[in-house]
Structure formats: C-alpha cells, structure tokens
Computed example of a mutant assay.
Amino acid sequence: MDLEVYDETNSVPADKLELVTNILNFAGKYIHLPENTEMSVTLMDNEHIHEINKQYRGVDKPTDVISFAIEEDNPDEVPIILPDDADFVLPKNIGDIMISMDKVKEQAAFLGHSEDRELGFLAVHGFLHLNGYDHMKAADEKVMFGLQKEILDAYGLKRE
C-alpha cells in the first residue's frame, strides 16, 4: 500500500509514526487490499480536528478520528481514459484519515490502556471506514467492530 503519514504537530515520536504505518499496512493485507491502494493519515491536535469536525460534520467539538473516503464512482467526474496498450494500473486512492493526538492521550488515560493501543485502534477504525465499513446499525457495528478487534489482536495490540 502507498501510505503517507503526516505529523502536523511536529511532535509525534518516530515509533508512533511507524506504528501507524505498520498497522495500516497490516490491516490492508488482512482485508486483501490491492498493493496499489493509496491513502493518507494526518496526525493533528484537538484544535485542528475541531475545525474540521465543525466544517465537515457540523459538530462543534474535537473528535478522535475522522475519515474522508474518496468516492470513485462519481457520475459528475470526468473519467480517466487510458490507452489500450497502457502497461500500468492506476492506483486506487481510498481517502484520508485525520487523528487527534490529543484525543489519543486523553482516551488512553481514560480507558486505562497504552497510547499505542489507542492510536492503533483509531487508525484501524478510520481505515475500516475508508473501506466501506460503518457502525450506524447494530448489525453493521457488529461486523465492523468484530473485524477491528480481529485486526488489532492479530497485530498484537490487544486490549489490556
């Protein structure tokens, strides 16, 4: 997977950036995403995620994670036409995840587990949203949260 991780805070330790990269690559393989899948993760503070949450979701408070899936089948979009003899495949960009590092710290302390576990949880949660999973209905929640737990456990970030 082509994954870009941005540290907007300029203060996230290298091991946390590596955790996000590793767990999302693991999750991509776990759900059998094509190798040419692209996505990004931006790690930010509560102030910036609050602005995004307010602007795009109409919620006037910071949140822990926001996912912006890219809709590939937009009828208003001009299609990219490749020549028949093209010897490459366009990558599939699934979207962007934003995670509040302030919320990672707050929620890890509140829930009594490590910041690594919380960061991994939020990254996988956002990743699953980008891949079409949701938790608006009880049946969907059971599927998404079950898969989320499977991925985190298999990676080694079990709930403590």
Rank of each mutant, 00 (worst) to 15 (best):
L3G: 04
T42Q: 14
S11F: 03
I31M: 14
D2F: 13
L147E: 07
V59N: 06
T63H: 01
V5A: 06
F127G: 11
S114G: 03
G28A: 15
D134W: 07
D134A: 14
A123W: 04
R57S: 05
K105P: 00
N25G: 10
V41F: 02
S114M: 06
E77S: 12
E115K: 06
M1F: 13
N10D: 15
S114E: 03
I97Q: 01
F26W: 02
S11M: 10
I66M: 15
D15E: 15
D64Y: 07
V41C: 07
H50F: 12
F26Q: 05
A139Y: 08
I23C: 08
E38C: 10
V143A: 11
V104H: 00
V104N: 00
E115P: 01
E4W: 10
K142C: 00
I66E: 05
D2T: 10
G112Y: 08
P79T: 09
A108K: 03
I94G: 06
L130M: 06
N25M: 09
K105H: 15
M98C: 01
A69E: 12
L147H: 07
P34R: 11
N74S: 11
Y56R: 12
I66N: 04
K149H: 10
I66Q: 12
E118F: 00
Y30H: 15
A138K: 11
I99H: 03
D102V: 11
G112C: 10
K29H: 10
E47S: 14
L90D: 07
I52H: 02
K105N: 07
L17P: 04
A69Q: 13
E150I: 00
M44H: 01
Q107M: 15
E47N: 13
V78W: 05
A138T: 11
V65M: 06
I81H: 12
D116P: 00
F26S: 08
A109L: 11
V143M: 09
I94A: 10
A139I: 09
E141N: 07
L128W: 04
E47V: 09
K149L: 03
A69Y: 02
G126V: 04
